[in-house]
């Protein structure tokens, strides 16, 4: 019987990397493509022929890499947003925004996530702590931008976009705070939204719009859930796109000081 000679792992790897499919995914310059050379040309192509080219130019100012200039805070905020999106989607599989009389589904679902869902507790913790951390990192990022004077021309408008992002980040965090439907949630939200009742002229309307009623109720829960998982993230992503696009159009990272 003829012996079939199996390719060694090395050969197999080579063959896969030589295939049309592989080459159609990893364009010339990709570090995963056969023949990547650590040359100036391939380094530039590695960025250029990559979806990352939407975010980064092929070359960046050397001083921008210094940790003490950006402290990576904008990047960390963005990374946290991604982590929150992924963990948030996971939580959505096990959570119903219902709290009608006789059974607070939202709350029991939370208990369920903590006790019976595989890794549920960990994912919920990551989502919660990550959200607090994001508020912190966005605030600190704003501080960094201020102290480096990075809002000066031509970056004025990107600072304004940033303020909107800060507002949206707070909005996301606050709407999420209500969802566990425990004592902490509804009372923190009651205290926070009571302030809206003092808006001039539109006090009643503002409160009604926010809460879907006069007080925090199951209608509020549904409303805030939709804001939290859909409306606000959507708007935030739009503004993020503008934010990142403007960084490049404004000539990359500011400075050096």
């Amino acid at each position: 019987m003829a012996k079939i000679k199996l390719p060694s792992p090395g050969e197999l790897g080579d063959r896969v990397r030589d295939s049309e499919v592989w080459k159609s995914i990893f364009r010339p310059g990709s570090i995963f493509r056969k023949g990547y050379k650590d040359t100036s040309r391939d380094r530039a192509l590695a960025t250029m022929n990559n979806v990352l080219y939407h975010l980064h130019p092929t070359k960046v100012k050397r001083h921008g890499l210094k940790l003490t200039y950006t402290f990576c805070l904008g990047g960390i905020s963005f990374f946290l947003f991604i982590v929150l999106t992924v963990t948030g989607i996971f939580l959505m599989f096990f959570y119903r925004p219902m709290a009608d009389v006789g059974g607070a589904q939202a709350f029991t679902d939370m208990q369920n996530i903590r006790t019976s869902v595989f890794f549920g507790d960990l994912v919920r913790n990551i989502h919660r702590w990550g959200a607090h951390l994001m508020v912190l990192s966005v605030t600190l990022h704003m501080g960094r931008v201020f102290y480096t004077g990075a809002y000066k021309p031509p970056r004025e408008f990107n600072w304004v976009v940033g303020v909107i992002l800060l507002f949206l980040t707070l909005g996301l965090s606050f709407t999420g705070y209500l969802l566990p439907w425990d004592q902490l949630a509804i009372w923190a939200v009651t205290v926070g939204t009571n302030l809206a009742a003092y808006s001039p002229f539109i006090a009643k309307q503002a409160n009604f719009l926010l809460l879907g009623g006069a007080v925090v109720s199951p209608d509020t829960l549904l409303r805030w859930y939709v804001l939290h998982v859909l409306a606000l993230p959507f708007v935030l992503v739009l503004f993020l796109a503008v934010h990142f696009w403007r960084i490049r159009k404004d000539g990359g990272i500011s400075g050096p000081l």
Binding site: I31, S40, R43, A44, A46, T47, L52, H56, P57, T58, K59, V60, K61, R62, H63, G64, L65, L67, C72, G75
Partner: peptide
């Protein structure tokens, strides 16, 4: 050109 470095690997690794 100023003093620039390649995004890959310098910046991407840092990120």
């Amino acid at each position: 050109q100023g003093d620039r470095v390649h995004t890959w690997p310098h910046l991407l690794i840092e990120e």
